[in-house]
Nucleic acid binder design. Structure first.
Lengths: 324, 324
DNA sequence: TTGTAGGCGTTATCAC
DNA sequence: GTGATAACGCCTACAA
């Protein structure tokens, strides 16, 4: 159980520690034979490089911190996949921290990343207020995914457009009384709501907005109230798929059929909506593409620290299904 | 952007480095006033403890490695929640790595954890063969979640019982021709299948087993074949909820109604099945409880490294819904 | 209660 | 090509 160190390998192989180090990073300055020999000895001894020590000693930028807001929301799994796809190839190491559904652990997650001295942070789904976020953007390079942040690199999907697509789709289907179940208001996540309102106004329709949450069951309760009320709308547009499924849950409870008794539209095109079972019309924000882009930006930033803020925007698309 | 170190804080506060270290870990041997003063200086200077250096220098066991097999499967989010609940309280630091849906990244994930010199690993959903796994259990303390491993601490749900519950449930509902869509065969995950077969045999019914996968869409294709074949079963029991949803997807495509044209049962009680929309009958494996238990075991093991292997088993329960 | 010295396992910078 | 030697930032005795 006692750890084998570089010194051990060096001693047994009959070389200096420095050579072992070089051999394991296949750097220049070590002949193929000695390299092979060193690696063989290391293998026999069960040597495993100590990344902690390497991080401390080295000055190379090779670790990327990743913050994912909520593992229960599959969009973050998609984003992670995208990130990993490119960082794996670039040989960068990832340090992961995660928040929670309520969004109360942003600070904790970022703080942990900083204590681990990551060279840059890719943060997906941050909800902490701009004011607090500024304290971080001044201390570390940050690539924000989904959330638009001034003073940081950003990768996000055009939420205003996405919401407009969804709303227009409903209007074209003849709906005039539409409720938007919004996410809890927070800096950087107001575009979907704005897109909805603008689209409604464009057709001189009154936008109805109800504040929702990121929790499916909470939205279910909210939807129950809406559906049981006197002025039940003919369509509901939810800020994301989780919330939309909450609406579907409520409908199932009341014996209502999506697409018939009420139109429902979500946002994210997660596997929740993809399923023919739910048949949820949604807006595809392409999570894995966002992830890939974010990682690209992070690598670019590491190469060139002083260039201006990088902003990449992707265009969402509407995915019509049976629920509308 | 240049990092503030302990030495900086010490200099400004007019004390030694050691004192700063003690103050930040609120250890004995530092008066309340100096402590306060040191912390104040640190705050002003924007000092942040360097966990990398601390890990390297210290000998205390305070980091736990966590491996989660697949972020797209919500059961792992549940398990993570459970783990976090207890490690947060115990003040332990988590290092996270994740695999993928195919299960091809187990080695990579464990290896990264080892390179980070975690003191113990909690691994959920390992699929690598026993033979390979042994190389790890001999090098590091391992708490295996879901998977039963000899020579390591284990926390798992009684899968044989769970599968029996599900199968018996179907039989009681009058089904005699039942297909079990199994997970890809691998060490440590054969109990659900065995539970199914045993329950069928107990009633002198012929068990039909089809090999499935961990991917929802792949199972959808498999289910399509089964449902279109001449001898369509009256019920399908899938190895987990993801797979069960794949079956539901196939049914939706064929216009079949779950619970009417075909009974479907899943496993995990993830939010996929919880939803009234899917109404999927399932077996509740209680992920967060598994996570909590695993973390408890890990802490116990750190305290007492030499005790015999700890094995904790939980009892799953059947959750009947409309799909059966 | 406080300060000093040595070490954790690497990487980086030199000479050889 | 190869091998000493000084960092890296902190912890942990031990001495004061």
């Amino acid at each position: 159980m006692q750890t084998v160190t570089m010194a051990d390998v060096a001693r047994v192989a009959g070389v200096s520690r420095a050579l072992v180090s070089l051999a394991y990073r296949d750097a220049y300055g070590v002949s193929p034979e000695t390299r092979e020999n060193i690696l063989a000895v290391g293998r026999k001894l069960g040597y495993r490089p100590n990344r902690v020590a390497a991080q401390l000693a080295g000055k190379k930028q090779l670790t990327i911190g990743v913050f994912l807001q909520d593992l229960h929301n599959e969009i973050f799994a998609d984003i992670y996949d995208g990130i990993r796809e490119v960082t794996d190839q670039a040989g960068k190491h990832l340090v992961l921290t995660v928040g929670d559904t309520v969004g109360s652990k942003d600070v904790e997650g970022l703080e942990t990343l900083l204590e681990n001295r990551v060279d840059i942070i890719i943060a997906a789904g941050l909800t902490l207020p701009d004011r607090l976020l500024k304290k971080y953007t001044s201390r570390v390079r940050l690539v924000s995914v989904s959330r638009l942040v001034t003073g940081a690199d950003c990768v996000y999907s055009d939420n205003h457009l996405g919401a407009t697509l969804a709303t227009t789709h409903l209007i074209e289907r003849g709906h005039r009384d539409i409720v938007f179940i919004a996410n809890p208001p927070s800096d950087g996540y107001l575009d979907r709501r704005a897109g909805f309102e603008d689209a409604m106004h464009a057709d001189s329709l009154p936008p109805r907005v109800v504040e929702g949450s990121y929790s499916r069951v909470e939205v279910e309760q909210i939807a129950l109230q809406i559906l049981k009320s006197a002025d039940r709308p003919s369509a509901i547009f939810a800020h994301n798929d989780q919330a939309a499924m909450g609406v579907m849950d409520a409908m199932a409870e009341l014996g209502l059929t999506p697409g018939v008794d009420l139109a429902v539209v979500g946002y994210d095109n997660s596997s929740l909506s993809k399923s023919p079972v739910s048949g949820l019309t949604t807006v595809d924000a392409r999570g894995s593409e966002l992830g890939r882009l974010a990682a690209d930006v992070a690598l670019e930033r590491l190469e060139n620290p002083d260039q201006a803020d990088i902003v990449r925007q992707t265009e969402p698309t509407l995915v019509p299904r049976s629920s509308s």
